[in-house]
Design a protein around this nucleic acid. Structure first.
Lengths: 188, 188
DNA sequence: TCCTGTTGTCGAATTTTTTAAACGGTAGTA
DNA sequence: TACTACCGTTTAAAAAATTCGACAACAGGA
């Protein structure tokens, strides 16, 4: 369940030791606005909430990161891994398989069993998303491009980088490549 | 720097493979609203943005998590994986090897190449930490205990759970077991 | 070609948020 | 007791977001 925005704002404002008026002054809104938001009498626009949080200061992402734990399925058999959309192969000849462990969104951790067939390629338009990702090569070889850099990876080799850097996976070799990767937060 | 809300929404909507109307239907808003937001002609209220994201689905926190990139070492050769302290084997006979990819702390994502020799065990005092962890069995078998539940895992099987639940890894079989696992935030 | 369904955009009316200014309450000081 | 300074709340007008309905563009099928 999610706590309401008003209560959350009151929490963070008070944690910052600010009065409604003081925060309003720093944020460039009126104190009335903050009062109404905290009472959940209106739902702030993103624009104004952003301004308000700049007065704390706090990012929108931090503001909204409050969740509760829960029980879930734990073990997923080899056959139960969920094949996620891989229509991103673009101009690639070989197939790419992305099989996901469990519900990545719920846990904020995405673990994939990836198979790159010979000739496969995530495409010339580089991937980019807001995550951190890494992996270990289980078998085969592949070519990893991150930003301007190219790497050829083999069994036991591994990588870890900020996914905001443009990246691309390609298997120009003649044997399939198997990787176990992790990504947080998940990339759909 | 931050990308604008409209562009971001368009990104995630298209990544989800939804049209404006389809997303609108799922979210319970009108397509016009989504059109205007994506053009940055208005700044959605938190209430409506939340509704829209539920149609994706995506949390507000995820939606707003985009920040600035950085340069780092990316690739770690098989020989470069760092063996982290494994004095937790307790009463275990076989050795456990935890080899970490890169600097887990920096990226908030810990990826391990783990080898459980026959007879190895993380110990009777169950592990517990504030993380989410998951992994895929590359070869061999092992026994996973989470809370009250016990699982025997084989090649291709995987797991994903909240590490606050007490857990234990054990290899009572007569062949080594290799796992690639991920944990966020890292568990030292 | 026409028909049908879909796409994203746009204008006018409606609804909601934001502002600006006032209100009552509390605490400290003289 | 006043006075001052601050607190959070409230109200009516102004501003902005949302809806509703229509529009043009495009694609596929008959």
């Amino acid at each position: 369940m999610e706590i309401d925005v008003g209560t959350r704002l009151r929490q963070v404002r008070e944690a910052a030791g600010l009065s409604q008026r003081e925060l309003a002054r720093r944020a460039g809104v009126t104190n009335g606005t903050i009062s109404l938001i905290e009472q959940n009498r209106n739902s702030p626009s993103v624009a104004s909430l952003r301004k308000v949080l700049q007065g704390i200061p706090m990012t929108l992402s931090e503001f909204f990161s409050y969740e509760i734990p829960e029980e879930e399925k734990i073990v997923f058999r080899a056959s139960e891994l969920f094949e996620i959309a891989s229509d991103l192969q673009g101009d690639s000849k070989g197939r790419i398989s992305f099989r996901q462990v469990g519900d990545a969104g719920k846990h904020n951790l995405q673990i994939l069993h990836e198979v790159y067939e010979p000739g496969s390629d995530t495409g010339r338009t580089m991937l980019q998303h807001v995550s951190v990702e890494g992996g270990v090569v289980v078998s085969g070889r592949f070519e990893l491009t991150v930003g301007e850099q190219k790497f050829v990876m083999g069994p036991g080799d591994s990588y870890l980088f900020d996914s905001r850097q443009p990246h691309r996976f390609r298997n120009p070799f003649d044997e399939p490549c198997v990787i176990v990767s992790a990504c947080t937060p998940p990339y759909l």
